[in-house]
Simulated scan of single mutants.
Amino acid sequence: MSTSNQSRIVASISVVGAGRVGRAAAAAFRAAGYEVHGPTVRGERIAPADAVLLCVPDREIGDAGAAARGAAPFVGHTSGATPLVEAGVDFGLHPLRAFVGTEDADSFDGVGCAVAGTSPDALRVAEELALAVGGRPFEVRDEQRAGYHAAASIASNYLVTLQAAAETVAAASGLPEGFRSHLVPLVRGTVENWAAHGPREALTGPIVRGDEATVQRQRAAVEASAPDLLPLFDELTDRTRSLVGTKGMPV
């Protein structure tokens, strides 16, 4: 669902930052019918607009925000972790997705967007922008940001780290190069099951079945082939047992 041009608070946007998010945001806002300036890079003049959206690294938000003051009545950022008060901006719009640089004008469609504002009008701007590009806005207050961003990092960043660990164990066990392609359908199916049924019902494998002998064989294989990953394996095993509500064999 998008907002109509007639009901919008802002008509023009200056996008600051030509990285992955900045390029995707500029393309999405243009497709949604906004007058878009940028994305600009550091040192470039910020064109006057109804709103400025800072798509820059967290450490650069303060300087970029100061430079944007005077260019628009509303200045916002796309940071998930940085509180609005700390950043000195009016609103926040953080798309809850991973950008890899190949996104197009539909890159926000259906994506949850954490929005916030230092005033009711600023919050309305953030919600409007999210809705206009097909996003699904939900409010995150400053005091919730650290926990929100930690949850997002666990779900996205640490999932990639976990898959890297799986590839390491597979390679160290002598499985063929390109084994990742066989893991991908498993991971996709698991994520789809988690999305549809929640974590407990999505779980499969030896811990759910109570097959501790298999768990111990897995542990021995990790210890032999990739011993540096053994603490991670043990922690994940313990957390999975807790989720299932079972106790395992002592190690």
Results as ranks from 00 to 15, higher is better:
His197Leu: 03
Asp58Gln: 14
Leu96Lys: 10
Ala81Lys: 10
Ala221Gln: 14
Leu186Thr: 06
Ala68Asp: 08
Ser4Trp: 00
Pro48Lys: 03
Val89Gln: 02
Ala164Tyr: 12
Ala202Tyr: 01
Arg141Val: 00
Phe29Ile: 08
Leu53Phe: 14
Leu186Pro: 09
Glu192Thr: 04
Val21Ser: 08
Leu236Gly: 11
Glu44Asn: 06
Val56Trp: 03
Asn157Gln: 06
Gly43Pro: 07
Val75Tyr: 04
His37Pro: 07
Ser7Asn: 11
Val251Met: 14
Glu35Ala: 05
Asp121His: 02
Ser7Gly: 15
Gly19Asp: 11
Thr246Asp: 15
Glu167Arg: 08
Val56Gly: 04
Arg180Phe: 11
Ala116Ile: 00
Thr78Ala: 03
Arg59Phe: 05
Ala26Gln: 03
Gly174Thr: 15
Thr168Trp: 15
Gly174Asn: 14
Ala98Trp: 09
Asp238Glu: 10
Leu203Phe: 05
Ile13His: 01
Val133Asp: 13
Val21Cys: 10
Ala116Asp: 01
Ala213Trp: 08
Ala105Trp: 05
Gly248Phe: 09
Ile46Phe: 00
Ala170Asn: 03
Ala26Phe: 04
Asp58Thr: 09
Gly210Tyr: 13
Ala171Lys: 06
Ala196Tyr: 04
Pro176His: 09
Val125Ala: 05
Val15Leu: 01
Arg200Asn: 11
Leu203Gln: 08
Gln6Thr: 06
Leu159Cys: 07
Asp106Cys: 05
